[in-house]
Design a protein around this nucleic acid. Structure first.
Length: 819
RNA sequence: GCCCGGGUGGCGAAAUUGGUAGACGCGAGGGAUUCAAAAUCCCUUUCCUUCGGGAGUGUCGGUUCGAGUCCGACCCCGGGCACCA
């Protein structure tokens, strides 16, 4: 996203990608690493309001600036296929494909809930609602129902869920999060007959139906709305529920409140009259917006029943069951045995489920149904800086799709939003068009698409970037799926699910053949830094950039105090947190690149933490990386100063030289595995550092010493080339090697160099380390045991005791169990 | 509240399949070099210790010859919760 300046998170993301790109290039693969801009969205509108500048200008300026920053990072990016989602030649295809989805019923229109700011008369994003109030006006936000376009992602719920099993290149936690998000459940629809209109509920626990003691509907439920018409108290309650945010988190933490609607509904099996309540904990968009409440076996129902003194009826019994002890698995499906349930008594969960569902079906008051937590994707946004939805509203013809030949519907780029509604709605030139069907005056749709639409298929467009007549062409199937996708864990659900859905929709409409967009996924950790601040009067907090602070540390190196570099006055240290604009603890990549060079910054970032973990920024750490590079350069220069190295003769090596060579080839093995398979770069770098420590310690300047050094330094240059490409090339040149290091191939492991004559084993007595012994590499179990038992220190701990057991783990250790 | 992660020296971390806890680096301490400093190089650096050893991977408990790793409960921190991207 072109937010203005590159931040360290970008540097980390693209460096990880670049390391992999270069590694695979060196291994002979054809690698495509493109770059683009997810350029629509809210921040551009906010910046526009602040500066009075059109979002388009702000966005294009940012892209130009950030592109230059990116080019400083030595990334192997194919800039020929760069794209920006705000370009008409990109978003044209959003519109084109939206129309295809409309034709196929994947896109459709229905009402949805939004945050409404009554003062600014505008729809607010969740981010713009703070504690239930509009962020600019402070007005209490209301929920409002408006017509929107939706994409039928639930049609793909089963495939999206089932295909997760095949995504073995994805982190397990991301798959788990997506599976839970889709939330497939097997339950029953049950009808509770009611004079005011039957109430339909969905439950995953029909086995507890005999314990239902009341019904609860959402405030937006038609029955609640109807009863509110003639009852002030209910109406006031429904209004109260309408206030506050729309997010699930806000709803889940609010105090559970309700009110009786003054109507009853019939229990479908017993005919008993159950009171119907309206409750703020019932979600309108899950199931049917109504629940049957079984207080004895559901925590929320229990809390609600206690608060409002509603009856509680136990219908599930099992050992240890206590109808007041909710921690003991009250809602478990295991150990279920029905009680107080008439003819269903004694049945287990599945038997009760089946029997009750069957009886409901006979009465036509219920049936089994698979339900999903996943909801259809509402893509309409009442905002300017996005892709226009290509629809024309005609008084006579209704909603008319824009004909393909009129695409793209271009977004005017010179508007400046003012915070009160969508400027497109006031832009006559955009708004007024003739109906494509009847030719009479009509109005354009002014809603734009969710920016998640833009980011749901951009990876496909890279393959066909120069094709103006097709969304994607045959090259998409050549390249897809993306072999390695890298992004923040914050995208684990929404973006990645939408991109998977969109890919499947494109497949079903015949545009591509792949089922899944991303073969392997890496979720990168965030970049953190120290936070410093000062408190001024009235509790105002002024954050101080870490670069402006001198810190004092105690003997242990802990930060104990800090002062401002300019005035020497104390500042408060507030620990470590994500780099953010508000806390002023960001580090400008360009400053760092200018001070240390891009390669050193890359080296530090890859070394400081494994890619999936958070990374703490450390100026001292960057210094350390710079120091390592300096040592490496010096070692190579000293070696190269001795002239061309003699040829290596493996048969002439002394033990120390052999040992060094063995270390080199072990390092090649480890680095290849760390980069190629595990994708952890910190340990790869550590291994190279160890090798460098060993070779620096090695003295001697015979022909074979120099030959081994030549082999090692060349290997090190190649192993580090993916991480520090420019420095590695320079080393490569100094070592007298020809050409581009990228084309030199990846170093190969010499199996002969790895061979060892003897190995060190650890000897434990009762699991505690007591000795280390050297044994021949091919020693058998018996001789290892004997060698272990013969060790002096081992005998100290085994003397006078009975040996119960000896465990020999080949190549690792011996554990002698005595008592 | 719900879903998903994480917690190891002063700090970033390593330990890949249940087998030597702390590799590598930072910081700190000591030394060399220097008129001095910077830079560089060398040594020490989990804690306790009677120098034999003992304890130790958020807390408590369990499985195992052996647990940072597996199981159960809890505490704390982070990500997501559908209109931030």
């Amino acid at each position: 996203y072109p937010s203005g300046k590159l931040h360290m998170g970008h540097v980390r993301n693209y460096t990880i990608g670049d390391v992999l790109t270069r590694y695979h290039r060196m291994n002979g693969k054809k690698v495509f690493q493109p770059m683009g801009w997810d350029a629509f969205g809210l921040p551009a509108e906010n910046a526009a309001m602040k500066n009075g500048m059109p979002p388009a200008k702000w966005t294009y300026d940012n892209i130009a600036y950030m592109r230059n920053q990116l080019k400083q990072l030595n990334l192997l990016i194919d800039w020929d296929v760069e794209l920006a989602t705000c370009h008409p030649n990109y978003y044209k295809w959003n519109q084109w494909f939206f129309l295809r989805m409309l034709e196929n019923g994947i896109a459709y229109k229905k009402t949805g809930t939004v945050n409404w700011d009554p003062v600014d008369q505008t729809v607010l994003a969740n981010e713009q609602v703070v504690d239930g109030r509009g962020w600019r006006t402070g007005a209490l936000v209301e929920k409002r129902e408006i017509p929107m376009y939706y994409l039928n992602i639930t049609r793909y719920a089963d495939e999206l869920l089932d295909h997760l099993d095949h995504l073995d290149g994805w982190p397990e936690r991301v798959r788990a999060m997506q599976a839970n998000w889709i939330g497939r459940s097997h339950g029953c629809d049950i009808t509770f007959p009611c004079d005011q209109g039957d109430i339909e509920v969905y439950t995953t626990r029909p086995d507890t139906l005999m314990g239902a003691t009341y019904l609860a509907v959402a405030a937006e439920h038609p029955l609640a709305m109807k009863m509110a018409e003639n009852n002030k108290e209910i109406s006031a309650f429904v209004d109260e529920c309408r206030r506050g945010g729309t997010t699930e988190a806000e709803i889940a933490v609010q105090e559970k409140k309700g009110m009786p609607l003054g109507v009853t509904a019939k229990h479908p099996l017993t005919g008993e009259e159950l009171p119907v309540w309206v409750a703020n904990y019932v979600l309108m968009h899950y199931g049917s917006g109504a629940v049957m409440a079984v207080p004895a076996h559901d925590e929320r129902d229990f809390a609600f029943a206690n608060k409002y003194d509603l009856p509680i009826k136990q219908v599930v019994g099992y050992d240890g069951y206590d109808d007041r002890n909710w921690k003991d698995g009250y809602a478990s499906k295991e150990n279920v045995q029905l009680v107080n349930s008439g003819k269903y008594d004694g049945l287990d969960f599945q038997a009760a489920f089946d029997a009750i569902a069957a009886d409901l079906e006979v009465k036509d008051l219920g049936r089994k149904r698979v339900n999903y937590r996943l909801r259809d994707w509402g893509i309409s946004r009442q905002r300017y800086w996005g892709c226009p939805i290509p629809i024309i509203h005609c008084g006579g013809c209704g909603d008319v799709p824009v004909p393909d030949e009129d695409l793209p519907v271009k977004l005017p780029e010179d508007l400046v939003p003012d915070g009160s509604g969508n400027p497109l709605a006031k832009h006559e030139e955009f708004l007024n068009v003739d109906c494509p069907k009847c030719g009479k005056p009509a109005k354009r749709e002014t809603d734009t698409m969710d920016t998640f639409v833009d980011s749901s298929w951009y990876f496909l467009r890279y393959t066909s970037r120069d094709n103006d007549s097709k969304m994607v062409d045959e090259r998409a199937d050549e390249w897809m799926p993306v072999d390695q996708y890298i992004g923040g864990i914050e995208h684990a659900i929404l973006h990645l699910l939408y991109a998977r859905f969109w890919t499947k929709a494109m497949r079903d409409l015949g545009l591509i053949k792949v089922d899944e967009p991303f073969k392997r996924l890496m979720t990168q950790g965030m970049v953190l830094n120290h936070i410093f601040y000062r408190k001024h009067g009235e509790g105002r907090i002024e954050y101080i950039p870490p670069a402006d602070v001198n810190v004092q540390r105690n003997d242990k190196g802990e930060i104990v105090s800090a002062e401002h570099k300019e005035d020497g006055k104390p500042v408060t240290y507030d620990g470590i947190g994500t780099m953010s604009k508000s806390k002023l603890n960001g580090v400008d990549p360009t400053d760092m690149v200018e001070e240390y060079g891009a390669d050193t910054v890359r080296l530090f970032m890859m070394f400081a933490a494994p890619p999936e973990q958070t990374l703490e920024w450390s100026d001292a750490g960057v210094e350390g990386a710079a120091r390592f590079m300096k040592r490496l350069r010096r070692a190579v220069e000293e070696h190269a100063a001795g002239g061309e190295a003699p040829a290596l003769d493996a048969d002439k090596l002394d033990p120390a030289q052999k040992e060094l060579r063995r270390q080199l080839h072990e390092t090649i093995q480890k680095v290849s595995d760390d980069i190629g398979r595990r994708m952890v770069f910190n340990t790869a770098i550590a291994a190279v550092m160890e090798l460098m420590n060993a070779v620096t310690r090695h003295e001697g300047d015979t022909d074979q010493d120099r030959a081994v050094r030549q082999e090692i330094f060349t290997g090190v240059a190649q192993l580090l080339a993916p991480i520090v490409p420019v420095e590695a090339q320079q080393l490569f040149d100094k070592l007298g090697c020809d050409g581009d290091i990228l084309d030199a191939g990846w170093p190969e492991v010499d199996e002969d160099a790895l061979a060892r004559d003897s190995i060190e084993l650890v000897v434990q007595v009762n699991g505690k380390l007591r000795a280390r012994i050297d044994v021949p590499a091919d020693a058998d179990k018996e001789s290892i045991e004997n060698a272990a038992m013969a060790d002096e220190n081992v005998q100290r701990f085994t003397d006078g005791k009975t040996v119960r057991k000896v465990i020999v783990v080949p190549g690792k250790l011996v554990n002698i169990v005595v008592s």
